[in-house]
């Protein structure tokens, strides 16, 4: 746990140095032993998990809403969004607060992930296009794949992942 916290702290301090960050930087996090990455410029902050307010009749992966300094921010459980096994939230469970662009508007969303891993420099040339997963996996929200050391990192298209119409569509199916 201590180690994970220091990772979070280190990443947070990297975030604060944000000014000189080139856009090739990605924040990576783990989710069921898989590594994912998001464009670091989209990351607003990283915070620990705190209880949220339930939203009626929302899709299950939308855990609820949170008060982030006066703004109401929806929180999505990424494991549930990807149909992975849900796990209990632990002290290392973190919420990554992202800003996304939908329909020309900026929205703030939080995603719950297992743990934050690192900040990586990935050159555009190192990003491979995603393979065709067919219909087995819904891969619309993956921008590309990158190999870092031994690991494969899936780079997420968060605008696509948290589209409001997407959420609406699933909400209506859920009903």
């Amino acid at each position: 746990m201590t180690q994970a916290m220091t990772t979070t702290e280190r990443v947070s301090s990297e975030l604060q140095r944000g000014g000189d960050v080139a856009s090739n930087q990605f924040l990576t996090f783990s989710l069921a032993n898989e590594e994912y990455g998001v464009d670091i410029l989209r990351v607003q902050e990283i915070k620990g998990w705190t209880p949220v307010t339930h939203i009626p009749n929302a899709p299950a992966y939308l855990k609820g809403v949170l008060n982030l300094r006066g703004t109401i921010v929806p929180i999505v459980d990424l494991r549930m969004r990807f149909n992975l096994d849900a796990i209990d939230y632990t002290p290392t469970t973190v919420v990554i607060v992202l800003s996304l662009l939908n329909e020309g508007r900026e929205r703030t969303f939080g995603i719950v992930v297992d743990a934050v891993s690192d900040v990586l420099n990935i050159a555009p040339t190192d990003i491979r296009p995603k393979p065709d997963f067919g219909t087995v996996v819904d891969a619309d929200f993956i921008n590309g794949l990158a190999t870092v050391g031994e690991h494969m990192v899936m780079l997420l298209d968060i605008d696509c992942l948290l589209r409001p119409d997407e959420i609406n569509a699933i909400a209506s199916v859920g009903e």
Binding site: P56, I72, P74, R107, P164, I167, N168
Partner: peptide
């Protein structure tokens, strides 16, 4: 009153 729509969407009954 705070808006839910600014980051999420309208919710029926809320």
């Amino acid at each position: 009153i705070k808006s839910l729509e600014s980051n999420y969407r309208r919710i029926d009954g809320v």
